[in-house]
């Protein structure tokens, strides 16, 4: 994990690299879970996969990443609850199956 960087007192900017572990990749269903979780935070969430970048709160955008099992993502959060968001989202992505992801919520 990279150390968080302060821009404003309340605004954090944090990023973390995670591996997609569930066999279905980050497609519709897992993607939906991701977006739903991301939307609970105030921070902006961006996800990068290779040379593609997507809004972590937009399912359709996230799907365009085409992230499949084994791929590395970089999640970047910026906002008051960036750290917490990053923690939760990273944990979700690293789950081994969609069912496990579901149980999380």
């Amino acid at each position: 994990m990279l150390p968080g960087r302060c821009s404003r007192m309340s605004d954090m900017n944090a990023r973390r690299r995670v591996r997609v572990n569930n066999p279905q990749g980050l497609h519709l269903r897992p993607g939906e879970l991701f977006v739903r979780l991301a939307s609970q935070f105030d921070s902006q969430i961006e996800v990068t996969c290779g040379d593609r970048r997507a809004d972590g709160k937009s399912l359709i955008d996230l799907c365009t990443l085409g992230a499949t099992q084994g791929m590395e993502l970089e999640i970047e959060a910026s906002g008051p609850d960036a750290e917490a968001a990053l923690e939760a989202l990273a944990e979700l992505v690293e789950k081994e199956s969609v069912d496990e992801m579901n149980a999380e919520q």
């Binding site: 519709l28 993607g31 939906e32 977006v35 709160k57 937009s58 399912l59 359709i60």
Partner: peptide, 13 residues
């Protein structure tokens, strides 16, 4: 369908 619903509500879209 949950996913479709999420897609439909997608603010970026």
């Amino acid at each position: 369908f949950s996913a479709h619903l999420e897609m439909l509500k997608d603010s970026k879209l």
